Amino acid sequence: MTPEHGSDPVAAVLAALAEPTRRHVLDALAARGTATATELADGLPVTRQAIVKHLAVLDRAGLVTAHRAGREVRYRPAPDTLTATARWMADLADAWDRRLLAIKHLAEGATAAEGARAAE
């Protein structure tokens, strides 16, 4: 986790995914299942060194895990953190939907009351 995000995993995930190249790296890694930085760099228009830096950010955010296999470091997606972030976003969307529905009901009730008064 990066210091600027403290112990807030959602903030770390959103910050990590705000950079388009990191999303491409994560997509490429998800498609492969596991890969080295060199393998990922072969399919992306950035250097291996840049891929390593992006993978480090993704690792700190909990979106990938790294393990050494001989001289290589292999990365794999860690979907649990992304799933938790998606769940938080869905809960937030549900809360907003409930608020908007309540506002709609209030507005419709006010409109109906005004219509009834006008008909009198």
Rank of each mutant, 00 (worst) to 15 (best):
M1Y: 03
M1G: 15
T2P: 08
H5C: 09
G6R: 06
A15H: 15
A15M: 00
A15T: 14
L17C: 07
A18I: 01
A18K: 12
E19A: 14
E19N: 13
P20D: 10
T21A: 13
R22E: 06
L29Q: 07
L29E: 11
A30M: 00
G33V: 03
T36H: 06
T38D: 11
T38E: 12
E39H: 08
E39W: 05
L40M: 10
D42F: 10
G43Y: 00
G43V: 13
T47H: 10
R48K: 13
R48E: 14
Q49K: 07
I51S: 06
I51E: 02
I51H: 00
I51N: 07
L55R: 00
A56G: 13
V57Q: 05
V57E: 12
R60A: 15
A61C: 03
G62H: 02
V64G: 05
A66H: 03
H67R: 15
H67V: 10
R68N: 13
R68A: 15
R68W: 00
A69S: 15
G70V: 01
G70A: 02
R71N: 12
E72A: 15
V73T: 15
R74I: 08
A78D: 11
P79D: 03
D80I: 05
D80G: 11
D80Q: 13
L82K: 01
T83F: 02
T85I: 04
T85Q: 08
A86N: 07
A86M: 03
R87Q: 12
A90H: 11
A90N: 10
A90M: 07
A93D: 14
D94I: 03
D94Q: 12
W96I: 04
W96T: 02
R98H: 10
L100P: 08
L100I: 03
L100Q: 11
A107E: 09
G109K: 00
A110C: 07
T111Q: 13
A112S: 14
A113I: 03
A113H: 04
G115T: 12
G115M: 05
A116Q: 13
A116W: 08
R117Y: 11
R117V: 13
A118T: 09
A119K: 09
E120W: 07
E120V: 08
